[in-house]
Simulated assay, not measured.
Amino acid sequence: MSPSRNRRTQWVAGSAVALALLFAGAATVASARGEAETPGPRTPSARSADAGFARDMAVHHQQAVEMSFIVRDVTGDEDVRRLAYDIANTQANQRGMLLGWLDLWELPKTAPDGQGPMAWMPGGGHSGHDMEGMEGMDHDGALMSGMATRTELDRLRAARGKQAEVLFLQLMTDHHKGGVAMARGCAERCTVPAEKRLAQGMVEAQQSELDLMADMLAARGAAPRP
Rank of each mutant, 00 (worst) to 15 (best):
Q115K: 09
G185L: 02
G124K: 08
D73K: 12
G125C: 02
L212D: 01
S68L: 03
R72E: 15
T43C: 01
E209W: 01
C186Y: 02
S48E: 06
T173H: 15
F53C: 06
S48Y: 12
P3V: 02
A181G: 13
T43D: 08
W105I: 05
V80T: 12
G25C: 06
T173G: 15
D140T: 10
P44W: 09
A46K: 07
L171E: 11
G100Y: 07
Y85Q: 12
M182R: 02
H139G: 04
G25I: 06
A58M: 06
A142V: 03
G34R: 13
P117S: 09
H60S: 07
F23I: 13
D79R: 10
P39A: 07
H60A: 06
G124R: 08
R81E: 06
L19P: 03
T151L: 04
H126I: 07
G178F: 12
G146C: 10
L217V: 04
L21Q: 01
S68E: 05
Q207N: 08
Q163I: 12
R95A: 10
S31K: 02
L167Y: 11
L198H: 00
N93S: 14
Q207L: 11
A88R: 02
Q62V: 05
P112Y: 10
H61I: 01
F23G: 14
R8W: 01
T149E: 12
Q91P: 02
T149I: 11
L167M: 15
G201L: 03
A92N: 09
I87T: 09
V17W: 11
N6W: 04
L21A: 15
E195H: 01
H176V: 07
Q170N: 12
E37Q: 11
C190K: 02
Q200L: 05
S127H: 15
A181N: 11
T173C: 07
R8T: 04
R220S: 06
G128Q: 08
S31T: 10
G124I: 05
M213I: 05
G178L: 09
D73P: 00
F53S: 07
G124N: 04
L198P: 01
L198C: 00
L153A: 14
V65H: 09
M172D: 13
R157N: 14
M213R: 10
Q207F: 01
Q207D: 09
A32P: 00
N6Q: 09
R155K: 15
A51T: 14
M67S: 09
M1L: 07
V71G: 11
R5S: 01
L99E: 03
F168E: 15
G125S: 07
R8F: 03
F23R: 04
T43P: 00
A164C: 13
A148G: 07
Q91V: 06
Q91T: 06
R82I: 00
R33Q: 14
Q62N: 04
R95K: 11
Q163G: 15
V29P: 04
V74K: 06
V166E: 13
E106V: 03
F69H: 14
M172E: 10
P224C: 06
C190V: 02
A187S: 14
G116I: 05
A32M: 12
T90K: 03
Q94M: 03
G128W: 08
T90P: 01
A58I: 05
R95G: 10
D154T: 14
M202V: 15
H175C: 13
M118Y: 01
T75L: 02
R72V: 01
R82Y: 01
A183R: 05
T173S: 15
A32K: 08
V71Y: 09
Q163V: 14
V180W: 11
